[in-house]
């Protein structure tokens, strides 16, 4: 196990040295905010935890960046890096699942859709499982199920609080009913965590739907979400096709869930770390 640090500096714009033709590379330098559609320096976004400095829109962040944002000094020890997906059903759609996995690993540099680690938050240890949407849509197959279950079991044996940051389209179709069973597996582990009175905060981010919402993401002692995140059981398209109506504005967004009693709070990214530290400091098991 190693201490991980940020290693990518490739996004920083480079200026050619003196003497050569002075050109500034601008590709990747600007991003257009999906919220207010204004172009802004990517650097400014990053300095602001990938939240638009103008309109407050929260861009999606990957699992590792999330862990760096939450842990003290961005440092953590990662667990179970060697678990990876097989293709138990030998699933083929337009492509083989096994080929898809190879591509995904190359593209993302990750083994699957969740990164799990332990580190400190406000000086106290916390186990965090953080999902990445860019690995097969953040979908939950056997690996996600196993890594999150192990994280919870580890938290039980070491008596450390748990945070799970969800970002997922739900269960992974390519592993069929095995994916569905991960919902039961993780929820059973959370049943033990619950009975041991070890605190668990679920952070729902954009988007969290399907089997992930219908299992661990809704089972926190506190369920909180980032602003504007899409959160639901069924996806909006499925609901529209079922009821044959347009959905109301803001339906299935964080604020809608808060209003309907499904969330404890909607918390901006810049306040998440402080929120978790403060909440855990108050959530002491009864003697």
């Amino acid at each position: 196990m190693a201490w991980f640090r940020r290693k990518k500096d490739s996004d920083v714009p480079t200026v050619q040295p003196e003497g050569e033709r002075k050109t500034v590379r601008t590709e990747g330098l600007f991003v257009k905010c999906p919220g207010c559609e204004r172009a802004a320096f990517k650097r400014d976004f990053e300095a602001n935890l990938n939240v638009c400095p103008e309109c407050g829109h929260h861009l999606r962040v990957d699992a590792r960046e999330r862990l760096r944002q939450l842990f003290d000094d961005g440092e953590f020890v990662e667990f179970d890096t060697g678990i990876s997906a097989t293709d138990p059903l030998e699933f083929v759609d337009t492509r083989k699942y096994s080929d898809r996995l190879v591509d995904m690993k190359r593209k993302t540099g990750e083994n699957d859709a969740v990164v799990v680690g332990v580190g400190n938050m406000g000086g106290s240890p916390v186990v965090i499982a953080s999902m990445s949407l860019d690995f097969v849509g953040g979908s939950m197959g056997s690996v996600v199920g196993e890594k999150i279950t192990r994280a919870i079991e580890r938290a039980i044996s070491d008596r450390i609080p748990v945070v799970i940051v969800s970002a997922s389209g739900g269960a992974r179709m390519q592993e069929g009913t095995l994916s569905l069973m991960q919902m039961a597996k993780i929820s059973a582990a959370l049943a033990r965590l619950d009975e041991e009175c070890i605190p668990y905060i679920s952070i729902l981010t954009d988007p969290t739907t399907g089997g992930v919402t219908a299992s661990f993401a809704m089972l926190g002692d506190l369920n909180i979400a980032e602003p504007g995140a899409l959160i639901g059981f069924a996806g909006p398209r499925v609901i529209e096709q079922t009821i044959r109506q347009k959905l109301p504005k803001g339906f299935q967004r964080s604020e809608f869930l808060l209003e309907h009693g499904m969330l404890d709070d909607v918390v901006e990214r810049g306040r998440l770390r402080e929120y978790v530290i403060r909440a855990f400091s108050l959530m002491q098991p009864a003697v």
Binding site: I83, T86, T149, K185
Partner: peptide, 8 residues
């Protein structure tokens, strides 16, 4: 349920 899942 703990045993369910296939991975390497």
């Amino acid at each position: 349920f703990r045993r369910m899942g296939r991975y390497s």
